[in-house]
Design a protein around this nucleic acid. Structure first.
Lengths: 167, 167
DNA sequence: TTGATACCCTAGCGCTCAGGTAGGTATTCG
DNA sequence: CGAATACCTACCTGAGCGCTAGGGTATCAA
């Protein structure tokens, strides 16, 4: 598994908030019940979302949570990163402060890690996809125009996706 | 973490085998020592690679492992899938027998899972990247022509990657 | 003011699984 | 033969995920 239920539940919470996007905050208990999710656990997740500035909260009676921004302004990259901590395909690959990709196995700068190219590519494609998908995309549902990335009745199987590299 | 060390170590083993791609098999102990990896653990991983038909083995003295095919004919999708079991970004998403993407939370076929679009996109981009990268790409190292996917000195930071969706 | 509502924080628990060890057996070369 | 190597099964251990428990605190309705 690549993403934990933190991301799964957290994204669902965001979708629920986006659907009822008015001035009135939505109590978390309502979201939990509607989605069949454990309330006490959601509280942890929504705390991360709040600290990341993705949701606002109102305490007290008639309180609850609401989106901090418009659904079109919230990317899945922000949501997932807030929930999971960071986006790294594998442990030895991390993002340096300057945005460069660092391999922890690379002690000797002379010979580079041969697998670094692979994990860098993978990370890049994941991040790009997460950033290209906004909360609004999910709320609108599958009524989007069919693009290569849109979910369809039958996505190509693993072996069916053509490779661009000549064999 | 999205991929375990199974993939990390396994890919390294494949690279080592590709580098010494002759008729002579390479004993696993040699690979383990060269990469500073635990031999007993590599035995588990290489067993998966063998069952997937990616490497051949010769028993007995002067035995060892060698690639079953040319490095240009081995994609990282095959390697990672053999090691990890399957490629799924999140638990609730699996690939059906017909290649379609199935969400386990979708009990009622009437209302589709709103987050399915996201995870389908993510899975697709990962698989595509893994299939576009062959073992030969890694062995040749960073001497490839610079492409948008090629590892560079400074890959864009998470927030620096431009989004294609209008804000 | 008082209670109810709901956010907020810290601790901890059970279980799975990744990561690795151990020890034995089968097979081949010299 | 015996050294080297693949191959198989079982087992161990620590960490983290998923979740619960329970108290605290802010805010609103009445």
């Amino acid at each position: 598994m690549m993403f934990s239920t933190k991301s799964e539940y957290g994204v669902r919470v965001m979708v629920e908030l986006a659907r009822q996007s008015g001035e009135e905050p939505i109590p978390l208990a309502e979201i939990a019940e509607r989605g069949g999710l454990p309330l006490a656990y959601l509280e942890h997740l929504v705390a991360r979302l709040r600290k990341a500035g993705l949701v606002d909260s109102r305490r007290g009676s008639r309180g609850g949570y609401l989106l901090a921004r418009s659904p079109t302004e919230i990317t899945m990259a922000e949501v997932v990163e807030a929930l999971e901590g960071s986006i790294a395909p594998i442990e030895c690959i991390t993002e340096g402060a300057d945005g460069s990709i660092v391999c922890s196995r690379e002690t000797d700068p002379a010979h580079v890690c041969p697998t670094k190219l692979l994990w860098t590519r993978v990370r890049f494609s994941i991040v790009r996809t997460l950033q290209d998908t906004t909360l609004a995309d999910l709320v609108l549902g599958p009524s989007l125009p069919a693009s290569p990335l849109t979910t369809g009745p039958a996505l190509p199987a693993l072996d069916a996706v053509p490779r661009t590299v000549a064999s």
